[in-house]
């Protein structure tokens, strides 16, 4: 499979191995407030046990994609008007958000969204709401994030950004997901912390076989840990391929990694200039 621009509406669904994908979106169309068309026939597949990165500029519809998958659209007056979302062999397009979590998916929202007035431990217990017995899982999460164990009684709102992100991921893990979705885990974090968070994501994938779908602005970091990458523009997938090939793709390099043809770093001004002139569609 090579990195190819996707022009058809069902490109991704066709290229993904049919049996092996945990999550599949087929031609999903999302409209907000009955008028604003945000996703225009988006298709993508997340194979079981892999890390998939969904990249794209602001307003491309990345967050909307995750909300369509996790069922949060109705709370924002949005709606999937066409296409289907299939998770673990089951059509979940119209399923209630709470029910989807029970089916085995967890979403870490953009901006972390920890429960500010609850303690770290209470945040984790809230994350295990769908589980009958959460005692053991609590120990597992504390073992994975030793920092959280030290801070279990602290009020979450006063943690640092990096600590909150760990808590948000830990809380999502408490629901025992098969698929973990992360919306911009690097948002507002220092580069060193971004590296740490992505280290955790990679470990979750390799050590526990967790399937991950991650949205990122930080394309370089995301393509380093991901197995497969998708690039979105204006509500559609415009490019996809194995992450290694994506990293080498000249267009991706130019637009998302900020590198020129010769491999040198380009000035932001030039990149922006190009961006306006050249699009895939």
């Amino acid at each position: 499979m090579s990195t190819t621009p996707v022009t058809g509406t069902s490109g991704a669904a066709a290229t993904a191995a049919p049996g092996g994908s945990l999550l599949t979106l087929n031609n999903v169309e999302v409209i907000y407030d009955d008028v604003i068309l945000v996703l225009r026939g988006l298709s993508l597949a997340v194979p079981e046990g892999k890390i998939v990165a969904l990249l794209g500029s602001n307003g491309a519809g990345k967050s909307t994609t995750l909300k369509a998958v996790s069922g949060l659209l109705p709370s924002e007056h949005g709606e999937v008007t066409d296409g289907s979302v299939v998770f673990d062999g089951q059509d979940i397009t119209r399923m209630d958000a709470a029910e989807r979590v029970k089916q085995g998916m967890s979403l870490c929202m953009e901006g972390r969204h920890v429960f500010e007035h609850l303690s770290v431990a209470e945040n984790l217990v809230a994350g295990a709401y769908t589980q009958k017995d959460s005692g053991e899982d609590l120990d597992v999460v504390y073992e994975f994030f030793p920092k959280l164990a030290d801070m279990r009684n602290r009020v979450a709102g006063y943690l640092s950004g990096g600590e909150q992100q760990m808590l948000a991921i830990g809380r999502a893990l408490m629901a025992k997901p098969k698929l973990l979705m992360l919306d911009e885990p690097s948002l507002g974090l220092a580069p060193l912390l971004v590296q740490e968070i992505f280290g955790y994501i990679k470990r979750l994938n390799t050590e526990r076989g967790l399937t991950v779908l991650v949205i990122e602005q930080n394309a370089r970091r995301a393509l380093e840990v991901a197995d497969h990458g998708y690039i979105m523009e204006q509500g559609r997938i415009v490019l996809e391929g194995p992450a290694a090939e994506m990293r080498e793709n000249p267009d991706v390099k130019e637009f998302y990694l900020g590198l020129g043809e010769e491999g040198g770093r380009k000035s932001y001004r030039d990149v922006k200039h190009y961006k306006r002139r050249k699009r895939w569609l």
Partner: peptide, 12 residues
């Protein structure tokens, strides 16, 4: 505290 975040935890 946060309705949307609670929904992502499967809380109805």
């Amino acid at each position: 505290d946060d309705q949307q975040a609670a929904m992502t935890m499967g809380i109805s």
